[in-house]
């Protein structure tokens, strides 16, 4: 058994196969990075919507809360299918990669909104009050006072989330997006040993994810205890 795998090694680790896998890995990374950055931008808007004051903004607050609570309770795979079928149903022309990106943003914005909310909640109301009394506008308070303090609460879970997302993008393989997992399936159907193929794919995911989770853990230790500075 082992002989067969070993005999396959030179045939598998060819330049062509490696480029194929690395390109797919690049796509996994791209989806993660774009998904998390757009997710954070949208998550920020969602949190802002949830914090609007007064009765006039109540519908917006409810909508944002509903969005966040809903999309954190639907499996990523199901979201991907809904986006795919909705786009087909309405006859938009969007590439499979585009479909995956939309699905990723829908779900990552909901999770990011929660991370951002926890970060902002860690800043005491008195900081807002103090700034308001000094005639800071809401955005000015956000920029000069709240964000510079909240980012250290937001960053560690953001890294944990990104690591989670690298892994979740594997589900985009079901749509046919040529990311790392899909590349593994392709090579496997070409007759390479599944042990070799999926073993390699697992290692490549690990290479992407491990440094980030270490960085996140380091940041958590680094940023957690001290305040200010």
């Amino acid at each position: 058994m082992l002989d067969r795998i070993i005999s396959e090694v030179p045939r598998f680790f060819t330049y062509y196969n490696m480029v194929f896998l690395l390109e797919a890995m690049g796509r996994t990374l791209l989806m993660t990075l774009v998904g998390v950055s757009l997710g954070f931008a949208l998550g920020f808007l969602l949190d802002f919507a949830r914090r609007t004051p007064g009765r006039a903004w109540l519908p917006l607050r409810l909508a944002a809360t509903l969005y966040v609570e809903t999309f954190r309770r639907i499996p990523f795979l199901v979201i991907l299918f809904i986006v795919l079928f909705a786009i087909q149903g309405f006859r938009f022309s969007v590439s499979l990669f585009g479909v995956a990106m939309i699905g990723i943003c829908v779900i990552s914005s909901a999770f990011c909104a929660e991370i951002i909310r926890a970060g902002f909640d860690s800043i005491h109301q008195t900081q807002w009050d103090t700034a308001a009394v000094m005639n800071f506008g809401r955005l000015q308070t956000l920029r000069h006072v709240v964000l510079p303090q909240a980012w250290r609460v937001i960053l560690p879970p953001a890294f944990a989330f990104m690591v989670m997302f690298i892994k979740d993008t594997a589900l985009a393989s079901q749509l046919g997006v040529v990311e790392l997992t899909f590349a593994g399936k392709v090579l496997s159907t070409r007759g390479f040993s599944a042990i070799l193929v999926f073993g390699t794919v697992l290692v490549l995911y690990f290479v992407l994810s491990y440094p980030l989770s270490r960085l996140g853990a380091w940041l958590e230790r680094r940023l957690a205890p001290s305040r200010g500075r």
């Binding site: 008195t126 900081q127 009050d129 103090t130 700034a131 000069h144 006072v145 510079p148 303090q149 305040r227 200010g228 500075r229």
Partner: peptide, 9 residues
């Protein structure tokens, strides 16, 4: 304020 409320950053 009683609790000073300095901007911590």
């Amino acid at each position: 304020f009683q609790q000073y409320n300095l901007f911590q950053n």
